[in-house]
């Protein structure tokens, strides 16, 4: 399985964010996106997820599911939590589990040690706990491609460790991860894509 992007151009509003971008991620590989603010890291993730249409170029998931879009085979974890404060932690996970076609709520609760908080209203969670709840969706249903936007922001050391375990599982399963980050994820061998180099080349 391989995700390949060729000669991608992304426009936001009337502005060209990046152009001529090529990348490839294979099964069990982690691609780390680096670059200054506004270089287009988040835009690239949203473009892969299918939320933004590329202005040029094309994107292909070789060996992926034929009837599903790339977005439907991906987890996108962005800055927004997609958590409803008036539902409990468990109810939030239960909704996404049912919505995404049945998942393992109990395993998700354990992935980031949220079990003690399971029946509390999500409105009571601290920023870090909210972030853990958002990330625990990764465990809920298996998807071949993970698109993570600054996943470690707001996490303490313990939770960062949990995230690392989760990511390693995904890679060991033959999944793919594309992550943007400003800090070292500590994930061993990872390919790095540098937006600054792309800009310099042009």
């Amino acid at each position: 399985m391989k995700l390949v992007g060729k000669d991608l151009t992304c426009e936001r509003g009337e502005r060209v964010v990046f152009k001529g971008l090529d990348f490839a991620v294979g099964a069990g590989e982690l691609l780390v996106l680096k670059g200054p603010n506004g270089a287009g890291k988040t835009s690239l993730l949203r473009l892969i997820a299918g939320l933004i249409e590329p202005a040029a170029g094309h994107l292909e998931l070789n060996g992926g599911h034929k009837d599903l879009s790339i977005g439907q085979q991906s987890h996108l974890v962005a800055h927004q939590s997609a958590v409803k404060p008036s539902l409990s932690v468990r109810e939030n996970l239960a909704f996404w589990s049912e919505f995404l076609g049945g998942g393992d709520i109990e395993a998700s609760l354990d992935a980031f040690a949220l079990r003690p908080l399971a029946d509390y209203s999500a409105a009571l969670l601290s920023a870090g706990q909210l972030r853990r709840l958002t990330l625990s969706r990764l465990k809920l249903v298996a998807r071949v491609l993970w698109l993570l936007d600054e996943p470690t922001v707001g996490l303490d050391d313990n939770s960062t460790g949990n995230l690392r375990t989760l990511m390693q599982d995904q890679l060991d399963r033959g999944g793919m991860i594309i992550a943007t980050t400003h800090v070292d994820l500590g994930m061993g061998d990872a390919t790095t894509f540098d937006f600054a180099a792309l800009e310099a080349r042009q």
Partner: peptide, 16 residues
């Protein structure tokens, strides 16, 4: 509006 603001709508767009 609430689903758009908190990112739920985005997640739904990636759903089945």
């Amino acid at each position: 509006q609430p689903d758009y603001d908190d990112g739920s709508l985005e997640q739904m767009a990636l759903g089945p």
